[in-house]
Amino acid sequence: MKQKRSFKFKVFRGIAIFLIIMVSTFFVYVSSYYKSSSLALDALKSDSLVTVEENGDILFKPIYNNKNIGFIFYPGAKVEASAYAPIAKEIASKGYTVVIAKMSFNLAILSPNKAENIVSKHKDINSWVIGGHSLGGVMAADYALKNNKIKGLVFLASYPKDKKDFTSNQIKVLSLWGSNDKVANLNKIKEAKNVMPSDSEFIEIEGGNHSGFGDYGYQKGDGDAFITNKEQMSDTSKSILNLLDNLN
Rank of each mutant, 00 (worst) to 15 (best):
M1C: 05
K2Q: 10
Q3D: 07
F7T: 14
K8G: 01
V11L: 15
G14A: 13
G14L: 13
I17Q: 12
L19W: 06
I20L: 12
I21E: 08
M22P: 02
S24A: 15
S24C: 08
F26D: 10
F26A: 11
Y29T: 12
S31W: 07
Y33I: 12
Y34G: 11
S36L: 09
S36K: 04
S37D: 08
S38G: 07
A40D: 06
A40T: 04
A43N: 04
L44G: 11
S48Y: 04
S48W: 02
E54M: 05
N55P: 11
G56D: 15
G56S: 09
I58N: 03
I58D: 05
F60Y: 10
F60K: 08
F60R: 07
K61C: 01
N66A: 14
N66M: 13
N68Y: 02
N68H: 10
G70D: 03
G70T: 00
G70E: 10
F71D: 06
Y74P: 12
Y74F: 10
P75D: 14
G76P: 14
G76W: 04
A77R: 15
A77S: 14
K78Y: 00
V79L: 13
V79H: 05
A83I: 07
I87K: 00
E90G: 01
A92Y: 07
S93N: 06
Y96H: 06
V98S: 05
I100R: 07
I100F: 09
K102H: 11
M103H: 07
M103L: 13
N106A: 06
I109V: 10
S111A: 12
P112E: 13
K114D: 08
K114Q: 11
K114M: 05
E116Y: 02
E116Q: 05
I118A: 04
H122P: 03
D124P: 01
I125S: 01
W128I: 02
V129R: 02
I130C: 11
G132W: 07
S134C: 05
L135N: 13
L135M: 15
M139P: 02
A140K: 01
D142V: 02
N147Q: 05
N148G: 04
K149T: 01
I150W: 00
K151R: 14
K151S: 13
F155W: 10
L156F: 02
L156E: 10
S158V: 07
Y159R: 13
P160H: 12
P160A: 14
K161F: 12
D162P: 01
K163G: 12
K164Q: 14
D165H: 06
F166S: 10
F166E: 09
F166M: 09
F166C: 02
F166I: 08
S168Q: 15
K172N: 13
K172E: 06
K172I: 07
V173S: 03
V173L: 05
L174S: 08
S175D: 07
L176E: 13
L176T: 12
W177E: 09
G178Y: 04
N180T: 05
N187G: 15
K188I: 03
I189Q: 04
K190R: 12
N194D: 08
N194K: 15
M196Y: 14
S198T: 13
D199C: 00
F202P: 03
E204Y: 00
E204W: 02
I205M: 14
E206K: 14
N209H: 07
S211A: 15
D215V: 05
D215Y: 03
Y216L: 09
F226G: 09
F226I: 00
I227W: 08
E231F: 00
M233S: 09
T236Q: 13
K238L: 11
L241H: 07
D245Q: 05
L247E: 03
